[in-house]
């Protein structure tokens, strides 16, 4: 794998829109009022700007997540945990057949810096790509004024369990996280904890649903409880997952409230395999050989079980591990 070390550079400012264009390796990135334009030596691609920015900012916040993050069918990133592939058409049969697919590998920090630079320049005040579409302004139009607050938030992770002394806090009014409008119909109480003398602080419980209901970001799973390398993540989901996630390992979804519609496709070719509608209480594996994208008509609560064992992606890629989690015997 040839790793490019060149960093992102600005290559000019559009006099009409005010946005800068950028080069990263052999990719160039340009935006206009409606779209992001990506070019590489043998091809070019266009992505609606809201979707592009929602995908890019999450990719930064997730640390490129597990495996493949498809911004759409053509453009995306692959996480190798230290290096990151940036690709265009590399997993699209049409592009591959035409010989116009392109992939470059960079140190992860270079891609993170590039995506932060592009996002910072292309996001105006009043638009927050981590918020649900009904809860933020529009990204369309010419450049006005760049946001000065952090682009990425809500990714604070627990190391043992949320709310334990010294660990990540649960969300509350005091942390600036009111109950979201979509969960205002629920009643939230606290668990009753009674410790015998001498055991104060050794028992712990939280209202997990209350924590999720206060999330001010969507499609952003964050760690809440850890058993070994098994990570419980929870997230609030509204509208659509603005990326298509291709797994490099098996993961599990547990629908806690409401419903999410998942579109499933082959990871390598993108060919559709069908759909899954998960309702409250449903549990479903996402195998390591698929892509999935979720649609949540109403803001819902989702739990994700991940296996963070280092090197797992290599064991799945080599075929040592099957791309599905359960042996039915």
């Amino acid at each position: 794998m040839d790793v490019q070390s060149s960093k992102v550079v600005a290559i000019g400012t559009n006099p009409d829109t005010g946005y800068d264009s950028f080069r990263l390796g052999q990719f160039t990135f340009r935006r206009d009022e409606y779209f992001a334009h990506i070019e590489w030596p043998k091809g070019s691609h266009i992505i609606e700007i809201d979707r592009f920015l929602r995908a890019m900012v999450r990719d930064i916040g997730w640390g490129f997540f597990y495996g493949w993050i498809f911004f759409d069918d053509i453009f995306g990133t692959t996480n190798h945990y230290g290096t990151v592939d940036v690709f265009a058409g590399a997993y699209d049969q049409g592009c591959k057949d035409q010989g116009i697919d392109h992939l470059e590998t960079f140190p992860a920090e270079v891609v993170k810096d590039a995506f932060e630079t592009i996002s910072r320049n292309w996001i105006n005040e009043g638009y927050d790509p981590l918020s649900a579409p009904l809860e933020t302004g529009s990204p369309l139009g010419s450049k006005t004024r760049e946001r000065t607050d952090p682009l990425v938030r809500g990714f604070q992770s627990a190391t043992r369990m949320l709310g334990l002394e010294g660990d990540a806090p649960v969300r509350s009014d005091a942390t600036g996280h009111p109950i979201n409008r979509a969960f205002a119909d629920l009643e939230f109480d606290k668990p009753d904890i009674e410790c015998e003398p001498g055991f104060e602080g050794q028992l712990h419980a939280i209202n997990l649903f209350d924590h999720i209901a206060r999330a001010d970001v969507t499609w952003n799973p964050s760690f809440t409880a850890i058993t070994g390398a098994s990570i419980c993540c929870v997230t609030s989901e509204e509208h659509m997952l603005p990326v298509i996630h291709g797994n490099d390992r098996n993961e599990w979804f547990i629908q806690l409230t409401d419903e999410i519609h998942w579109q499933i496709a082959d990871k390598n070719s993108g060919l559709p395999r069908g759909r899954i509608v998960m309702k409250a209480g449903d549990v479903c594996a996402m195998p390591a050989d698929i892509r999935h994208q979720g649609f949540s008509p109403k803001r819902s609560m989702l739990m994700v079980m991940e296996n963070g064992t280092p090197g797992l992606e290599l064991r799945y890629a080599s075929g040592e591990l099957k791309p599905y989690p359960v042996d039915f015997g």
Partner: peptide
């Protein structure tokens, strides 16, 4: 908000051209 319970739940649907055992 729809929250299920022992007395009231409705399972979703899985419609895939694939081996459903992979999704459990």
């Amino acid at each position: 908000t729809h929250v299920s319970s022992l007395s009231a739940f409705e399972k979703g649907v899985i419609e895939l051209k694939d081996d459903l055992r992979k999704y459990a």
